[in-house]
Design a protein around this nucleic acid. Structure first.
Lengths: 372, 372
DNA sequence: AGCGCATATTGAATGGTTTCAATACATCCT
DNA sequence: AGGATGTATTGAAACCATTCAATATGCGCT
């Protein structure tokens, strides 16, 4: 004694509305008089459905304004279309730009971003990676910390696809997208040497970081290739502005070994360095030249305008996305390691070193706000 | 004929390992010889469990290195501990700082952030809100666009708690955390007037945005309260740097009505304005004073250092978080509307207007890189 | 009409957790 | 001892979409 079709449809409607719960595939299936399997096939598009049935299903979906429950979907498929994005901070413009680019492509492709921040600490990183895995994210993009091994192992064990970005890693298990720090540094330092600089200070956050190692290699190669005698000092520092400034001061006032050019590893340190130079009354580029890796967005607003190595931010994001998708679809043949090129931008902060002693003379050339 | 306990435990271990699937509550329950309900109670802490059983369960959890499946949890509870965070961009430092603060508190409290970007477009916003709802996020933080009504309706209908941040809204359904644009603007403009400015240009992105309206009110009130005759021009502009610069140029070169002070609504527009002033050879603060709302992080690095209205970014994030949690726990008595205070920071970019005609004379006082 | 093949459709089972009505157990009192 | 009260524990049902083996349908051919 099954009810009349129309009455049945009415009853379904009632059911979802009366119980004040969102409609499910079952509701849709009933209303369209098909099975749940068919509804699912229409939704996923993985199995062919006749036009007639598809029409019915789509109609029912719009009638009930059905929306897929992504949690249930993820549970069943053991992977959700959430993509874990793991960066140190968002308040550094390079990272923020990466996040922005990832969100753009993810939302275009029907994925969502679960964002976790590692604060550059391996412990925190591990904790955040565990969080992502608990959500069974479909894939992970990660800008790894100095000691990512445990995180990597956990990810590998879970079988979640991972693409490493920005920081080259020796780990042979994962795809990675980086840019050529060696070449960029070589180009930049060669220019400094050609201008006459013989004392270079390289300010880094972590000497052990793979990017730092590459950059130092590029720097040393540039010196070798130039055939000149160039002294290099490396200043390593934690994130503490006061401590950094005092260490920088002692470097800059150390008599004979005083650098005439400073290369800074990231935009936050560049901000501090810039501030410090003003504080010490050291003029740039008259007394010391300055180059920043990770282009801050105020590079062309300060005086002097800042020379930078500009990472191919959006290209990194888009390339990494493609690799991740390939891996999520199991199409990856082998581990991919893409190395993009960074652009070296020479602006006013680089000039020849001062002729004699780089003392702080007050007779600097007049400088007005208008760019020359 | 049930197997010997020890054999049973061994068999459970086998099961999870042999099938190469992550252990479930059932595995834990078997190994601890308790029911799944008890395991769940230990995990959630919502129901009291005897110390003996709790110990067994914890032991089993660590033995199997069990991890909760958050998707299944979310499905069952109809809400996941994902928090939707909805901002226009991340590549604007104010927004990035908000995201950073939210991630910090979320991860401390065991929640995760699902980040979606609206690009300031109501259509995109609606689409992104739908995405969040499909994941049954436990709550939403949102910096709304100009026309958020449809998004709001959807969220309200879904019953998801929402806290509006930064932009005051008339909607009586949702908590909100904003800062006092009226007061900040009043304070800043009063200072400009006191310095002698009588022609002010206010650069905004959207006249209709609630924050803009408040700011204009503050500006007008400051004028009224001063008792002076002050001319105000409002320049509205889309995000297109070239178009903006040409419109700004015509404002700045419009003879009699030429402004002696410019107030700019956000850090991106400030960047452009700053660039434009240099391009036109207009000196700041000699020819024109400049004030930025939304403090860019380079405010104290440029010459002149920039006067700003600094939003209480972290306070906004933490307050909003508390409101959201209260609502998620159903503790909210009524709709909360918190208005924090912004700090007005006067730096070198604000000075008295030029005595006579604000023409571009080259006789500006000498300015070196060192801050005076 | 009848057979075979290919394609479309079905729906019970599955994924892992939490919920909650029912049960077991302990405690206290008379 | 018997009964009443309260707490701890149990385990089947529910949450919702997808999967896949089984079935139904359509089509072409003789």
């Amino acid at each position: 004694m099954s009810p009349h079709p129309v009455a049945a449809a009415g009853k379904v409607l009632e059911e979802a509305i009366l119980k004040r719960r969102p409609p499910t595939v079952l509701d849709v299936a009933k209303r369209a008089s098909v099975s749940v399997g068919t509804v699912s096939n229409v939704l996923s598009g993985r199995v062919k459905v006749s036009d007639a049935k598809r029409g019915l299903v789509l109609r029912a979906i719009s009638d009930l304004s059905y929306t897929q429950n992504k949690l249930a979907q993820g549970l069943r498929q053991k992977r959700s279309p959430l993509i874990g994005l793991c960066v140190p901070f968002t308040s550094v413009s390079y990272f923020a730009a990466l996040v922005d680019a990832f969100e753009e492509v993810a939302s275009d492709r029907g994925f969502e971003i679960m964002q976790v921040l590692t604060r550059q600490e391996p412990e925190k990183e591990l904790q955040r990676v565990k969080s992502m895995l608990r959500y069974h994210v479909g894939g992970i993009m990660m800008l790894p910390s100095v000691a990512p091994q445990r995180s990597f192992d956990l990810i590998a064990e879970s079988g979640t696809p991972l693409v490493i970005i920005d920081r080259p890693t020796a780990d042979p298990r994962f795809d990675q997208v980086t840019f050529d720090n060696y070449a960029a540094m070589h180009e930049a330092v060669s220019r400094l040497i050609a201008l006459g600089h013989r004392h270079i200070l390289f300010v880094v956050r972590q000497r052990l970081l793979s990017v730092t190692v590459d950059r130092v290699r590029g720097l040393e190669a540039a010196i070798r290739d130039s055939g000149k005698q160039v002294a290099v000092n490396i200043l390593e520092c934690r994130y503490d502005e006061a401590a950094f400034i005092s260490r920088l001061e002692s470097e800059l006032k150390s008599g004979q070994r005083r650098p005439t050019a400073i290369v800074v590893s990231n935009s936050l340190l560049t901000t501090w360095t810039f501030r410090a130079l003003r504080l010490f009354g050291i003029r740039c580029p008259d007394d010391v030249s300055l180059l920043s890796i990770d282009e801050p967005d105020w590079s062309d607003l300060v005086d002097p305008t800042l020379s930078t190595i500009r990472p191919p931010t959006r290209a990194i994001a888009f390339t990494a996305w493609d690799l991740l998708m390939r891996r999520m679809r199991n199409e990856a043949q082998q581990v991919d390691r893409v190395e993009l090129r960074a652009e070296v931008i020479f602006r006013d902060s680089i000039a020849p070193p001062p002729r004699r002693k780089p003392a702080r003379s007050e007779a600097s050339p007049q400088r007005t706000m208008a760019r020359s």
